[in-house]
């Protein structure tokens, strides 16, 4: 019985330890490959800590092709976030304020991007737009609407959850009865209250766009992941170093978002606002 108890106490720790090894080992291997100038064959105990360098990564970062692909990716990501929020914030608010009966329909439609895998979407896109509007697919910004589609499911969910946490009707009616115009209600009441949802959706969209490969590669756009995939052949150390750098930056971004989310979770409710308005 005591042995059973001991096993019951020890197995979760053991299992977690194994899981951590599984998740960390590939990253460490990646780091070694990227930053150590010793081929695998001659790696042994005696030279394990020798010839570590970040030259490969630096070469890649200095490559003009890299900065070009980075700027393409950043621009596309920025406009995707913009388009997505301009489309989804009014839509979600409208669903909650004016057409609650349509919520189910809208929610189902926002899940549709999961039904059409990116590879199928891009095949359909080139089957339609290539013949009708070749100028559209020629532009780097043709990625924007399709990336907005990919980010739609979690953006809607994030906004929907944020709005449900508010007493939307009361907020709007209160602001209106105090004489605020519709745009003022939007900018001074609704958007500040939804900022956690907005930041959440924006950051997630940003990271998704920066990592997206399928659509960019089939539409032949020179985005960051495309650059990495090609650099693997010419400058493998730099490519892997860049991959690792992006992973680290993404992790930091995610951690920031979760910190913001935690800090904010107390301030999003109507009660606080009422208290603030009593005097």
């Amino acid at each position: 019985m005591a042995a059973m108890k001991f096993i019951g106490k020890i197995w979760p720790r053991l299992y977690i330890a194994i899981a951590i090894v599984f998740f960390v080992a590939p990253l460490l291997s990646m780091a070694r490959f990227a930053f150590q100038r010793i081929p695998m064959i001659s790696l042994g105990k005696d030279n394990l800590f020798k010839r570590w360098t970040i030259d490969g990564l630096l070469t890649t970062l200095r490559d003009p092709e890299f900065s070009h692909s980075l700027s393409v990716s950043l621009k596309v990501a920025f406009f995707t976030v913009l388009v997505l929020l301009f489309l989804m914030v009014p839509t979600t608010l409208w669903v909650h304020l004016s057409a609650p009966r349509w919520r189910g329909v809208v929610e189902t439609v926002t899940i549709l991007p999961y039904v059409v895998p990116p590879i199928a979407l891009v095949v359909g896109v080139s089957g339609t737009y290539r013949s009708i509007a070749p100028w559209f697919l020629a532009s780097n910004y043709s990625l924007v609407p399709f990336y907005a589609i990919l980010a739609m499911p979690f953006t809607f969910r994030s906004l929907d959850v944020g709005i449900k946490a508010l007493d939307l009707r009361t907020l709007v009616d209160a602001a209106k009865s105090l004489g605020a115009s519709s745009s003022r209600v939007m900018w001074n009441v609704l958007l500040p209250n939804l900022r956690t949802s907005l930041i959440n959706a924006a950051f997630l969209t940003f990271t998704v766009v920066l990592g997206e490969f399928t659509i960019a590669s089939l539409l032949l756009k020179r985005t960051l992941p495309m650059y990495m995939a090609e650099a693997q052949g010419s400058e493998p150390q730099g490519a892997l170093g860049l991959g690792l750098l992006i992973l680290v930056l993404t992790t930091i971004l995610f951690t920031l978002v979760s910190i913001i989310r935690k800090k904010d979770s107390t301030s999003i409710n109507v009660k606080n606002i009422n208290v603030g308005m009593v005097p």
């Binding site: 998740f23 080992a25 590939p26 990253l27 460490l28 291997s29 990646m30 070694r32 490959f33 990227a34 081929p39 695998m40 064959i41 997630l204 990271t207 998704v208 990592g211 997206e212 490969f213 992941p225 990495m228 995939a229 693997q232 490519a239 892997l240 991959g243 690792l244 992006i246 992973l247 993404t250 992790t251 995610f254 951690t255 979760s258």
Partner: peptide, 28 residues
């Protein structure tokens, strides 16, 4: 937090990491 990152990880960097770990010349 880590699961949030890893679940969204995919694409090129993930493939790189595993080639470096379990490829024919991988560390593991």
């Amino acid at each position: 937090s880590f699961a949030g990152v890893a679940a969204n990880l995919g694409g090129i960097p993930l493939a790189f990491a595993f080639i470096a770990a379990l490829g024919t010349q991988g560390l593991i």
